[in-house]
Computed example of a mutant assay.
Amino acid sequence: MTFPTGRAVLAAAAAIASFSIATNLHAHGDVTPQPVDTTALPDIAGGNDAWTTENPYTGNAKAIEIGQSAYGQNCARCHGLEAISGGIAPDLRYLELGSSGDEWFVERFRHGSSHDGKVYMPPFGDVLGQKAGWAIRAWLESKHTDE
């Protein structure tokens, strides 16, 4: 009986790993943004046109509930379930609290992120709207950790 050499074993492991990675990337499914029902949330002055720079829903239980659902439908495929990233995108549990974290979040949510012609995060602002964005941020604040 002949046993595979070390190189053969490494080659087989690399092939299995690359197949597994490719399968996982395709497993994200439909990336069409899913609508978020925000009718239960108080209106934000300016609507979707004049975005506020600080989260008006911080600590709002209904916003946190809506944000959790919206995150699961629109963000988790890249940022991870419960905001625990698997390395594809930033782990949003570490997003700074307060106005500086709000500023970073709303900029990325509204405009997305791209570098050298590659889209790393699509813009969600015009698609989901301000109320949904801030509800997601409120939920993320409830998941915040410094560890």
Results as ranks from 00 to 15, higher is better:
D146P: 01
G67V: 07
G129Q: 05
P56W: 00
G72T: 09
I64A: 09
V119E: 15
W134M: 05
P90K: 10
T32W: 02
L10K: 04
I64P: 06
T53L: 12
L10M: 09
E82D: 14
W139C: 08
D30H: 06
I84C: 12
S69V: 15
E103T: 05
V127L: 07
I66H: 06
Y120A: 09
A40T: 11
D43W: 03
S142C: 10
C75A: 11
L92M: 15
N60E: 15
A132I: 01
T5M: 03
V106W: 00
A135F: 05
E107I: 02
S99T: 07
A70G: 06
H115S: 12
E107F: 02
T53Y: 07
L95W: 00
V36Q: 03
R93C: 05
H111G: 07
G112R: 07
L128I: 02
Y71I: 06
K62S: 11
Y71N: 04
A70S: 13
V127W: 03
F3D: 08
F124V: 04
W134F: 15
A89F: 05
T23V: 13
Q73H: 11
F3C: 08
N24Q: 14
A14D: 06
N24I: 10
T39N: 12
I88Q: 13
I66F: 03
G133I: 00
S18H: 05
Y94V: 14
G117N: 04
T38Q: 06
N24V: 10
H26M: 12
R108S: 07
A138Y: 03
A27P: 14
R137I: 02
R110W: 01
A12H: 06
S114R: 15
G133W: 01
M121W: 13
V9N: 10
L92Q: 10
N24R: 09
P90E: 14
I44T: 08
T53V: 14
R137P: 06
N74W: 07
P33I: 01
R137E: 06
I21W: 03
S20E: 00
K131F: 00
V127F: 01
T2M: 06
T58G: 07
E82S: 12
P122K: 10
A15L: 14
V119I: 15
G112C: 03
L92S: 05
L128W: 02
A61G: 04
G112K: 07
L128Q: 04
E96H: 09
G46Q: 09
D91M: 13
W139I: 11
R77Y: 15
D30Q: 08
D49I: 12
R137V: 01
E96R: 14
W104E: 14
A8P: 05
